[in-house]
Amino acid sequence: MSTTRPFSRRLNHAVEGLMVWVLRFGGWASVLVSLGIVVTLVTESWPFFAQVPFHRLISDTMWTPLFADPQYGMSALLAGTLVTTGVALLVAIPLGTVLAIYLSEFAPASLREVVKPMLELLSAVPTVVYGYFALLTLTPLLQKIYPDLPQFSMLSAGLIMGIMIVPYVTSLGEDSMRSVPMLLREGAFALGDGKLGVALRVVFPGAFSGLAAAYVLAISRAVGETMIVAIAAGLQPRMTINPLESAATVTAFIVQVSLGDLPHGSIGYQSIFAAGAVLFLMTLGFNLAGHVLRRRFHRAS
């Protein structure tokens, strides 16, 4: 055999060997990207963290690294991120969960098939468009209710961000609720429970780690969202937890500095990498937690 068609066989062998390496390199690309992000953030923010005493990051109450008399209060940026994220989650988690319960347990299959992809369109809207909508439509609307609301407010940005995140919560949540076995629901129905009772008392706990993963990933989205807050929440770092005020988030600060002239190695350049490193650590934590929860859910069901 091996003498009759040696060439094609050797060719096959060579192609096979080559393709393994080509594909393997593709697999490495994702690791290289991660590596690129981590290495860039570490090396470019290093001078900043080396230069700024750690206690000032904690104790300063303002974040003005570019001023002549610089202040390095990271918490002023984190406050903005915290508030916008909080507002967004107050919208996205209840609304997303109710929609997930409705679509998974109540809606007829035909409606669900139509609604789910349409909801996903909501998360496909470019964030700059959401920013436009928050600034030029929602904020004027809110100002009618509360006239003292400034043109830039964390409330407006947070609300729209919440709407953007709803599909993440609903889609993941609905998937995990639907993978709860019917047998479990029947057990509760057989005891005489109603649909909402079964949903809340049996399906919800049964799908909890899946739902928790959805919530955690939603938090990560909100923390990292940039354009909506940069457009509608304002670009000035401010130490406040009042959502009716304007304040910059970690991400908005990076945008604000990037808009200006940014020579390599300047303090501004270093400061956005410092902000980016903090952002990376926060989202990394949430992403890993979400990943673990999702895996646990898939293993359990």
Partner: peptide, 26 residues
């Protein structure tokens, strides 16, 4: 009707709750 008829299924289907809460459910 279901409150008057108990049912036990082909496969055990305890709720994702404690033993106590499973029995207390009904």
């Amino acid at each position: 009707v279901r409150m008057r008829f108990g049912m036990v299924f082909q496969k055990p289907n305890p709720f994702p709750k404690s033993i106590y809460e499973n029995v207390a459910y009904g």
